[in-house]
């Protein structure tokens, strides 16, 4: 399911000036497709400001997300951004992979999370994943662990 959701939502960039920008850039596909509103992007940034960079779920990988209040999320979705050069989150955590998660309700996205988790605990897949440089490659690797 994760692989389907990621179609056309995968981007690669050289760098991002700040972590806030990185979240914005990573969220762009969801914003453009109408999955989320500008407000949700701000909420995700605010979440880090208030609660700290706990969305950096493993070293190098962040999963920006926030609570869906005031209709910030219109439709569950996920987007992916990979940076050549890492960007620094607070507490000097460097991140070069971002999965932006938008969850419409408390349950609809759990399969996505489950797939993502399968990917992250599969060491072989992660080695390939960190090397991947195209959407096709990314999606193939994810399909292999789903």
């Amino acid at each position: 399911m994760l692989s389907q959701y990621l179609k056309n939502n995968v981007h690669f960039l050289n760098s991002a000036p700040t972590w806030e920008e990185a979240i914005k850039l990573a969220a762009e596909p969801l914003l453009n497709k109408g999955n989320i509103t500008e407000k949700y992007v701000q909420d995700m940034i605010q979440n880090v400001n208030v609660n700290g960079p706990y969305i950096v779920i493993v070293p190098g990988i962040a999963m920006p997300h926030a609570q869906n209040h005031d209709g910030g999320v219109l439709k569950t979705g996920i987007s992916f951004l990979k940076l050549k050069e890492p960007v620094f989150f607070p507490e000097e955590k460097d991140v070069n992979i971002l999965f932006v998660l938008a969850a419409e309700d408390a349950t609809g996205h759990l399969e996505l999370i489950s797939d993502l988790s399968s990917l992250l605990i599969d060491e072989d897949a992660m080695v390939k994943f960190k090397e991947a440089s195209s959407e096709t490659e990314i999606i193939e690797i994810i399909e292999s662990v789903e």
Binding site: N47, V50, N51, Y54, I55, I57, M63, H65, A66, Q67, N68, L101, A103, A106, H109, L110, I113, S114, L116, S117, S118, L120, I121
Partner: peptide, 19 residues
């Protein structure tokens, strides 16, 4: 547990269940 209860906590719980 996490702030929103949808993202990172779900990730943690799912992964832990698998383990």
């Amino acid at each position: 547990a996490c702030d929103a209860g949808v993202g990172s906590s779900a990730m943690g719980a799912t992964t832990f269940r698998k383990r």
